[in-house]
């Protein structure tokens, strides 16, 4: 038994099938490219960081990586530790510690933050994100 299908219908069928197949192949080739380009886990994203207690002297600041981003730890008074994200809340520059003034200055647009991360002046909209610090023997546990 043969069924007759008019040429325009056959053409439409073929174009639909080819289009579908093409879309499938395109999707199958985009996926590897997407995975190839996806951000890599550089190992810096661990949730806890341990530092030796003496990395930061009273009044000084020590910069380190926390979850792949810059962070800073301070010892404002002996035995008292503060950890903050060092990423400015304005446009993401890394803040610098001004030892004399005892505050942070962002070199990009002169945003100022106190030693506990509060905004003192300039464009930053929010305080620096603060991180949990615990003193554990002679180790500092952040996060």
């Amino acid at each position: 038994m043969t069924t007759h299908v008019a040429p325009p219908q056959r053409r439409k069928f073929l174009i639909t099938m080819l289009g579908g197949l093409g879309a499938l192949i395109a999707a199958a080739s985009v996926w590897p490219v997407f995975r190839f380009l996806s951000p890599v886990d550089t190992g810096g994203s661990s949730n806890q960081v341990f530092l030796a207690r003496d990395v930061v002297a009273p009044g000084k600041a020590h910069f380190f990586q926390y979850q792949g981003k810059p962070a800073v730890i301070l010892q404002p008074t002996p035995g008292n530790f503060v950890a903050l994200s060092a990423v400015c809340t304005h446009l993401g520059c890394v803040v610098a510690w001004q030892e004399q003034a005892g505050e942070f200055l962002c070199p990009c647009h002169a945003g100022r933050f106190s030693a506990d991360g509060q905004v003192l002046g300039g464009p930053p909209p929010k305080p620096l994100e603060s991180l949990v610090v615990q003193l554990d023997g002679d180790q500092l546990k952040i996060g």
């Binding site: 590897p32 490219v33 995975r35 190839f36 996806s38 890599v40």
Partner: peptide, 8 residues
């Protein structure tokens, strides 16, 4: 190491 790196 890179995902699909072998393929490319």
């Amino acid at each position: 190491e890179v995902p699909f790196g072998w393929l490319f």
